[in-house]
């Protein structure tokens, strides 16, 4: 592999995305992308006792689905990169504890999905692995409980707030295959423009997305029009607008081929999700379900996926800290 500019890696032998899998919760099953997901749950507990156990089960089942679809036996998968939003990434480590695959627990908040794809690709192109598994999960209820309020508290959500996606997305990457290929990764810096409002994550993360986008175009020499689809992870409606605006001031017009997973996954008009979806699973499920099928059907050929994360927790929010953002990009091409 080869380093382009400051933050981008170009792969000599681009890893293939062999298979993907996605499982989503009840709300996502009512959304416009429902038909693209492998499994739609109608019970947010999925028969478990707690939200946390339900989330672990979701990631566990998604991962085994992805492995099954890949046709690769799990003994031949060399590494697993997984992460989620709960403290110390318990959903991933509890859900995958019986997987028997060397495991890297990773945290990049909602950017974890692309962080996993990036690290997995480097492992493969570097020769350390033949097959790598990447997975993330999030759950509306466990996230509300950890970051906000009890579910039954009668509060109002401000219009800038976002709805954590319940679900999980998993991907198997392989050294050899027929694509789609991960050709480049651009790893983001932490960017903090001082937003403190935990109910406006899109605004907190948008500057990081813009920074990574600009860097990607500089490092690769590509223009936004090179891609059929530029897709951010979970900026939501407000973050999307901000990103378009900020890119414009830098001389890039991305309006025509740019979208956001958090905007796509819910119908704003009927689902009352305010600024859109968020969470690790937002980017994970939309890519593993919707985008991957679009790639397979060759409806899109070149995709730039930028997962965005808000690197905050409830303690830092209580202590009045600002919300640092991060964004990682992968370039996926047929």
């Amino acid at each position: 592999m080869q380093k382009l500019g400051k933050q981008t890696i170009k792969f000599d032998n681009p890893p293939t995305i062999t298979s993907t899998a996605s499982i989503v919760g009840p709300k996502e099953s009512d959304g416009p992308l429902a038909s693209y997901f492998d499994k739609c749950l109608d019970d947010e507990f999925w028969g478990e006792e707690t939200w946390e156990k339900a989330e672990s089960k979701i990631i566990k089942e998604t991962v085994s689905l992805a492995i099954n679809k890949s046709g690769i036996s799990s003994q031949n998968i060399d590494y697993c990169f997984a992460g989620d939003l709960l403290n110390q990434c318990i959903s991933s480590s509890f859900g995958l504890r019986e997987l028997n695959i060397p495991f890297f627990g990773i945290f990049g908040a909602c950017s974890t999905f692309v962080e996993g794809l990036s690290l997995g690709s480097v492992f493969i192109d570097g020769g350390a692995a033949q097959n790598v598994l990447c997975a993330t999960s999030s759950h509306f209820c466990s996230a509300e409980k950890q970051f906000r309020f009890p579910l039954e508290l009668g509060n109002q959500r401000p219009p800038t707030s976002q709805w954590t996606v319940t679900g999980s997305g998993a991907v198997v990457l392989s050294k050899s295959g027929n694509g789609p290929f991960i050709t480049h990764i651009t790893s983001g810096k932490i960017v903090d423009l001082g937003i403190k409002d935990a109910n406006n994550m899109g605004a907190a993360m948008a500057p990081a997305a813009v920074d990574t986008l600009l860097t990607h175009f500089q490092d690769t020499g590509r223009a936004p029009s090179y891609y059929d689809l530029i897709l951010t992870g979970d900026l939501g409606h407000i973050g999307k607008e901000i990103t378009i605006d900020m890119m414009k001031t830098h001389g890039y017009n991305i309006k025509s081929n740019y979208n956001d997973c958090g905007v796509l996954i819910f119908d704003k008009a009927t689902q009352d999700t305010h600024s859109g979806g968020s969470g690790c699973a937002c980017c994970g499920t939309v890519f593993s379900g919707y985008v991957f099928q679009q790639l397979q059907q060759k409806k899109v050929q070149k995709v730039l996926l930028i997962a965005t994360g808000a690197l905050t927790n409830s303690t830092s929010a209580q202590q009045g800290e600002t919300i640092p953002g991060i964004a990682h990009a992968v370039s996926i091409e047929l």
């Binding site: 219009p159 001082g194 605004a203 500057p207």
Partner: peptide, 22 residues
């Protein structure tokens, strides 16, 4: 980011962009 020199400028811009509660 270079087009927003201060956090305050960005906050003002974000406030303008964000819908208010009805």
């Amino acid at each position: 980011m270079d087009n927003f020199e201060t956090a305050k400028q960005y906050q003002t811009y974000v406030d303008k962009k964000s819908p208010n509660s009805p």
